[in-house]
Design a protein around this nucleic acid. Structure first.
Lengths: 341, 341
DNA sequence: TTGTAAGCGTTATCAT
DNA sequence: ATGATAACGCTTACAA
């Protein structure tokens, strides 16, 4: 860092005190107009910029938000964009740390941001995270914390998340309505809540429609196209193969699609497919993939808004939970022209 | 920010001066062992954390790097990961700002980071950016700056980028080697250097193989699947349609693929396709797409390394330019079993 | 071995 | 209307 122009430089040059300069710069009422003008002119000329560090040290706040996310896939990147937009508007800077789905890195990142003295945290936990001491540490220090997307259910903190159960219901019910009888599900990692909730919606819907759950039709694979591809291969090689697949991400849907095409099966005729997230890619492949829109950008914005509200409010918001409703977008992969109900 | 434990608290509790505490904490040689032990024990107990703001103010450095990128697509996200990894290792925190391909936001972000007193900048400019006053401002303030990926050619600054011409050459030559005669190109925005360079490679290769360039076969469309889809539709509707398409991104390749499939053409038989970036999706669609690997993660790491070297070196590095060689990964979309050369 | 004091850049309080 | 001083948390000469 080069030496920046400081308030002192201006004071010295104008032969006045630093406090007067400070006041002039902030348009205090009790500064002589000429002085004010002179100060401002010189500040402009010297390209003066207030030193944020000094301010932060003084005010004990950095106007920055620490954001911890497991990765930067489409959904999270979109959410971060939403967070960033609102935060910037409110004068906050966002520091994003990816934990790369690693518990260890999540802890490292938490400590990094703690050291950076961020004013608060916005966190989505990694799929590996099963203990939450590092998150509790944030709360113990009384630093504002908001959980989003992959929230921790039993933790007292404001939360914003998708209604994942409802997403599972919408997808499954749609497939049933389209006449599919044997609906498989490609779920995510077993300990991942968002995955389990989507599956819960699937199970509920089967039950509500008097369809018996066949455990061979539910496969847990990582959030990974390759696994989804292989899992689907197995599924459609079964003697009584499923006639529809609900994958809990679009990436997985693409993996599934690949396997389906290889086998020479037609979508939506032979087999129906519904994904999740409604990523751009879903509308770009052939056939286009029906997918559950999860409003990632809006979730990001809502998260930042809640966070900022929390900063400025005395109220205890730890019980606050915002749940966003998803919406199935129907496309070719699951829309049968002839509905056999 | 709650009141954190400070060095003063420890000093007061132990009835010694803050300087002694400071020394003890940093393992100075001239502190009595007992004092040192007592200080450390209490620090531990009170969960003392040095205040980074105070340190930064004192040392005039924040140990943070400002990263400005146009968006968070797969390639950039991967590069940022590489930057982050190396930076973290070296004790730096990365502040990422997306300009969203907007010139205005890029300026806003530059100022934000300037105010945040980052120790330096790592920048990839937006596709809208044609004037560089904001970047020059960084340099005028003598703040270290490294350009990466989308570099500004005529600016004196260390640069790291892909050899985009070579990428264009590899892709085009491969298509020619596979017997394709009429090779079209879907290029990106006209003012975007990386796009033009890839196209330059395409043109060079045509020339080297005595193939006359047909300007109807070159279409500039945005980095956008939808445009690529439409452009391809037009291309293959031509009377003398191309028998191969080189798209300068995989996203565009997918758009192209969609149009090709719709038309009922087979890849690689009727038409060859080569993309760029080698995103995971390229190997997941059917047929899998040949694509130019650009080593995004490595570019990210190399960028951060160069940046950190720059911080610690007196040497003028403004002429330094690291150029990474890409490598075509051949897949089904362009590999004809019968090579008609 | 330890303490004192100045300084990093700014603002707020209290004088003048 | 303006200035002097203390404070934010820390390090580092310099003094003891």
């Amino acid at each position: 860092m080069e030496k920046q122009t400081t308030i002192k430089d201006i004071a010295r040059a104008l032969n006045i005190s630093t406090s007067t300069v400070s006041r002039a710069l902030r348009d205090a009422t009790d500064v002589k107009p000429e002085t004010k003008k002179a100060v401002k002119a010189l500040a402009e000329q010297l390209d003066y910029q207030p030193n944020k560090l000094a301010l932060s040290l003084l005010n004990r706040q950095t106007n920055s938000i620490g954001v911890i996310i497991p990765n930067l896939d489409y959904v999270l990147a979109t959410m971060v964009k939403g967070i960033d937009e609102v935060a910037l508007e409110a004068g906050y800077t966002v520091m994003v740390c990816q934990s790369d789905e690693s518990f260890g890195r999540e802890i490292v990142n938490t400590n990094r941001l703690l050291e950076s003295l961020v004013d608060g945290f916005i966190v989505s936990v990694s799929s590996e995270t099963k203990v939450y001491e590092h998150i509790k540490k944030i709360q113990n220090k009384k630093i504002p914390l908001v959980l989003f997307d992959r929230v921790i259910n039993h933790m007292q903190a404001p939360k914003i998340r998708l209604d994942n159960v409802d997403g599972g219901i919408q997808a499954t019910q749609h497939l049933i309505d389209q006449g599919y009888k044997k609906i498989a599900i490609l779920a995510g990692p077993e300990n991942l809540n968002i995955s389990n909730k989507r599956m819960e919606g699937y199970l509920q819907t089967l039950k509500a429609n008097n369809i018996k759950f066949d455990k061979h039709l539910a496969i847990h694979c990582d959030f990974n196209q390759q696994y989804a591809y292989e899992a689907t291969k197995e599924l459609i090689a079964m003697k009584h193969r499923p006639d529809a697949i609900f994958t809990i991400s679009d990436r997985m849907a693409i993996g599934a699609m690949l396997a389906i095409k290889e086998k020479g099966l037609q979508m939506p005729k032979d087999i129906g497919l519904v994904g999740f997230n409604n990523e751009p890619i879903a509308s770009l492949v052939t056939p286009s993939i029906s997918s559950v829109e999860m409003y990632a950008f809006e979730i990001g914005k809502a998260t930042a808004k809640l966070f900022i509200e929390m900063l400025h409010s005395e109220e205890d918001m730890s019980e606050r939970e915002i749940v966003i409703k998803p919406k199935l977008v129907v496309r070719e992969s699951s829309l049968r022209t002839t509905i056999a109900k």
